[in-house]
Every structure is written in C-alpha cells, then in structure tokens.
Simulated assay, not measured.
Amino acid sequence: MKHPLSFALALGLLISSTAFAVDGLVVKKSPYSPEETMDRLEQTVTERGLKVFARIDHAAGAASVGKSLQPTELLIFGNPKGGTAFMACAQSLGIDLPLKALVWQDADGQVWLGYNAPGHIAERHGVADCVVVPKLSQALSGIAAAVVGD
C-alpha cells in the first residue's frame, strides 16, 4: 500500500512544476518573455536540423477580430525522416504531425512552453510501443530544456 503523504507530496511537486494538468501535455516554465521564448524555440529547432513549417500568433488572430488574448504562439516543426519513422508505426499519426509547441503567457504573467508528449500521441494511435517514441521524447525534452534553461 502506498503512503498517502508520499502521493500528496508527489502531486504537489507535479502541480508546482506545471501550469495545470492536461493529459499528454508536457509543460515547462519559461524565465523569458513570450516573444523571447518563442524566438529561442524557433532558433533551437532550426539549429537541431528541423524545419519550421509555421509560426502562428493566436493573440494577433484574436486582435484581428476585436478580441484580446494573452500572448500565445504556436510553432509547427519537424522533418520527414523522423515523421515518416513515427508514421510507420501507425499512418494515422499524420494527424498529429508535424510536431507542435505552444508558448503562452498566463493571466499572472508566467510564460509557459508546452508540447504533446510523443508517448501520449503514440498511445492515442494504439502504438504505445512504437520504437521511435523514446528518441523523439528525448529530442523534444532536450529542445525544451535548451529553450527554457532547464
């Protein structure tokens, strides 16, 4: 039987390191502004040989229809070699590729970097044992660490 205090401590540590719990979303605090965090993400992705397909400014989209939204940008990136290897496990994975990372600022001013966990994506498509998941997870973790300074 697990000790309830251990569970409470683990839960507290998890909550303190993420903005909120969203199934399959890896979230890291950023010490940088939203723009600098996104610039660092785009630069890191490019330096690691990945292609940036799009950078989408959701806050600008909201402003274009007279609405306001905290700074929120999405980066879509990847490469055919890695994506093809992932899709070889289940072609339906193509709906979740290319990879995406979101940078946003919450109402308290904290900036966050988030991305879908490759293991979660693989589970969604029924291929949790896909051989590329560990390498892809490690690559995304490394990119996030380089961006936010973990």
Rank of each mutant, 00 (worst) to 15 (best):
T46Q: 06
T37A: 06
K51Y: 08
M1V: 09
A60N: 10
L136Y: 04
L50Q: 14
A145R: 13
G12I: 02
Y32Q: 12
G12N: 07
S30T: 08
G61Y: 08
A101F: 02
L9R: 11
P80E: 07
V26S: 07
L113G: 01
K51Q: 15
K81T: 13
G94M: 08
S30I: 01
W104Q: 02
V26F: 02
L5E: 10
N79R: 11
P71W: 10
S64V: 04
C89V: 04
S137Y: 04
V26L: 08
L75P: 00
Q70W: 03
A117Y: 10
W104Y: 15
I56A: 07
L25K: 03
V131D: 15
T46W: 03
L69D: 02
V147L: 06
L9C: 09
F53M: 12
G109C: 11
F53H: 12
I121N: 00
V103S: 03
L136R: 01
V26I: 14
A60E: 15
I15N: 05
D57Y: 06
V132C: 12
Q43R: 15
M87W: 01
C130F: 02
A19V: 01
L9P: 00
G61S: 12
K100H: 08
P134D: 06
K67Y: 10
F7C: 06
E47F: 05
S64K: 15
S92L: 12
L99W: 02
P4Q: 12
G61N: 13
I15W: 14
A139T: 11
A10E: 13
A10Y: 03
L14N: 07
G126E: 09
K81L: 12
V131L: 10
V111C: 04
Q138H: 11
L102C: 08
A117Q: 14
E73S: 12
T46E: 12
F77H: 02
E42C: 08
V26E: 13
V26H: 04
V52N: 05
A85D: 09
E73C: 02
I76Q: 06
S33G: 09
I121H: 00
K29E: 11
F77A: 01
K2S: 13
L140T: 03
I95M: 14
G142P: 09
S30R: 01
K28R: 14
A59T: 10
T44R: 04
G82D: 03
P118R: 03
S68R: 13
W104F: 13
A10H: 09
G12Y: 05
G142F: 10
K28Q: 09
A8C: 07
T72A: 10
A62S: 10
D150A: 13
G12R: 06
V111N: 00
K2N: 12
P31C: 09
F86C: 03
L9T: 11
L140A: 07
E123V: 05
V52R: 05
S141T: 13
A122G: 11
G66D: 14
Q91F: 14
I15V: 15
N116Y: 08
